[in-house]
């Protein structure tokens, strides 16, 4: 369901747990689907013994963005996003639980259409921010 501009106010939020206890298998699935086979994300031996990452594999940034995007499309409705951008601020590790939150910054009209601008933040179970970003979606009047 699409959002209505008349129902939205700056400061409104929508929040979802987008992954609970991230698994290494999901990193393998993401590698296969995206085509990013960087062993940093799937190969514990490479990470620990060759690359210097003692904790082992970590998630593709784009997986965190994809998980966060699920919260956005659930909030604004299918096919409504016009912009979505993020910065990756911390690594995401197997075992992490991520919560993604959108906050309404502005509701505006442009060229006869209505849009909502959103601030986007995803945090892990320790409260550390892993993604900050923004998004814009077309909304109904």
């Amino acid at each position: 369901m699409a959002l209505n501009a008349s129902d939205l106010n700056a400061g409104d939020t929508h929040e979802e747990v987008v992954v609970d206890d991230l698994t290494r298998t999901q990193l393998v699935m993401y590698a296969g689907a995206s085509g990013d086979y960087n062993p940093l994300h799937t190969d514990e031996v490479y990470c620990k013994e060759a690359a210097g990452y003692e904790r082992g594999t970590f998630a593709h940034g784009m997986l965190s963005m994809g998980l966060t995007g699920k919260m956005l499309t659930n909030f604004v409705g299918d096919g409504r996003l016009t912009k979505y951008g993020v910065r990756f601020t911390n690594q995401v590790w197997p075992g992490d639980t991520l919560t993604a939150r959108a906050t309404v910054v502005e509701v505006r009209a442009e060229g006869g259409e209505h849009f909502v601008d959103l601030d986007v933040v995803t945090t892990n179970q320790d409260g550390a921010t892993v993604i900050t970003g923004s998004a814009t979606a077309r909304v109904d009047p």
Binding site: G61, K83, R87
Partner: peptide
């Protein structure tokens, strides 16, 4: 180095 890490990503639809 594997070619680096991803710092930002932005899409316009």
């Amino acid at each position: 180095s594997s070619g680096g890490l991803h710092a930002e990503q932005h899409f316009e639809y």
